[in-house]
Design a protein around this nucleic acid. Structure first.
Lengths: 171, 171
DNA sequence: TTGGAAAGTCAACAAGGCTGACATAAACTG
DNA sequence: CAGTTTATGTCAGCCTTGTTGACTTTCCAA
């Protein structure tokens, strides 16, 4: 076990990083297992409503950016419009999402959560926040900073842009 | 924006943690976007072979624990045995995985990668390790420690056990 | 020795990805 | 104004990967 791996230089200037394949494998599995935990609570709630993760993602980003357009959502979610449309259609039919024709550009549809949609969003995000909060507290503030730094580096540049855009100002 | 959230106490003893809903939302989106980056490279390779993520997961954990049984794999992957079986069947048919009837217990199948399977595993994990390595280096060693600490806290206890089991001894 | 539990397989269904083709309306451009 | 591009929606069909139910083989314990 524990195969050594040469060719490891360069920290962010502060130190050299010797990363064995085994250490990297641990990181890979950490992502896998943690992501499962991360989605477990919302998944349980969604199941009660007969929705899936795709619905959760749509609801999340509509809530984050009320009035967003279908096209914008597409670029964030990285799925096809047919795929997104199916999800969006059921959410509109079920009265969780309101789709309003644009005023400036009437081709666009601006998406908002209804009160019912906002209620589900709160239930979902509360569950997810609770787990995130517990993890953050248990790990401590420095760990949280490291967590964010590594995840940010792991994103594709395009997605990183969406991530950074979502914040309240810089940082 | 930036809604305050009371009821935030307790670091790991070192400090108080005030976590707003907005900070937690940022963490949630970090997980979402980073996981996409994390799977992007293997997904591209898998597509060339006509496989999906489910195949990758099976290959990964068979490689990690050669000779593992179907049942053990099931408890790690958290899917139904029927679902896993379909993936496993194609991998065996395609000559990537070898399924040997157990000697002690003939009900069990012990799973190994063939040379062909090991080759695909190397291609997949190399791509994933490269991204992880780059992210780790860019973020620095302290960030890596924090990353691991938070992810470990985010896992369900059962999955955490599998995660810890996978290491070379404790830690 | 026999009945239940456990491991694995086969069949059928559903969610949610995907591609391709096409329709409509609005906006833009020469 | 004619023609093109853009934004969105829809239909049809395919694939992966999850699900449940029914079944076989093997093991073990009463």
């Amino acid at each position: 076990m524990a195969d050594r791996n040469a060719a490891n230089l360069m920290g962010r200037g502060e130190s050299l990083l010797f990363l064995t394949d085994d250490q990297l494998r641990r990181g890979i599995e950490a992502m896998f297992f943690a992501y499962r935990g991360f989605t477990a609570d919302p998944d349980r709630i969604l199941q009660e409503y007969g929705y899936g993760r795709a619905h959760h993602r749509a609801i999340h980003f509509i809530n984050r950016s009320p009035g967003t357009t279908v096209n914008n959502l597409l670029s964030i979610l990285g799925v096809t419009k047919q795929s997104l449309n199916r999800v969006l259609r059921t959410l509109v039919e079920d009265g969780l999402v309101d789709s309003r024709v644009g005023t400036r550009d009437k081709r666009e549809r601006h998406l908002h959560l209804t009160e019912k949609g906002a209620a589900l969003e709160r239930a979902l995000s509360e569950a997810q926040r609770n787990r995130m909060r517990d993890a953050f507290r248990a790990a401590g503030p420095e760990a949280v900073a490291g967590f964010r730094a590594v995840l940010e580096q792991m994103m594709d540049p395009d997605m990183k842009r969406h991530y950074l855009d979502g914040g309240d100002g810089p940082r």
